[in-house]
């Protein structure tokens, strides 16, 4: 029963964060702090799904670590793209 309650709370939290994120995105103007906030929410929501829906807490380390890394790497790449956009563009120009 405890698991079911924590799963339901996780689901409601994810729904709430989705609505907050959408409002924030529509209201905010482009800037590093908006990007960092959105990236942090991406990572947090990803971790909630990984822990409560996928239940990878007790899973094999190679599975748990890779999926957790995935949910952190993408938000970090988003921030890096905002910080070092011109350099990334220069590096990836043919």
């Amino acid at each position: 029963m405890h698991n079911e309650r924590s799963l339901t709370l996780a689901w409601l939290l994810l729904l709430g964060l989705t609505l907050v994120g959408a409002v924030l995105g529509n209201a905010g103007s482009p800037g590093l702090w908006v990007t960092v906030t959105v990236a942090a929410m991406m990572a947090f929501k990803g971790r909630v799904v990984i822990d409560h829906f996928l239940e990878l807490g007790g899973a094999h380390p190679s599975i748990r670590r890779l999926v957790r890394f995935y949910a952190v790497a993408l938000p970090v790449m988003l921030i890096l793209t905002d910080l070092f956009g011109p350099q990334i563009a220069w590096l990836t120009t043919l």
Binding site: L14, T18, G21, A22, L24, G25, N26, G28, S29, P30, V34, T35, V38, M41, M42, K45, G46, V49, I50, F53, L54, V67, Y70, A71, L74, L78
Partner: peptide, 22 residues
């Protein structure tokens, strides 16, 4: 269930990149 949650996880990455982030 694992496949479905992983697909959900990917959508949670796609959604802010296209619909939210200005």
């Amino acid at each position: 269930a694992c496949y479905w949650h992983a697909t959900d996880l990917i959508w949670l990455m796609i959604f802010p990149l296209f619909y939210v982030l200005p």
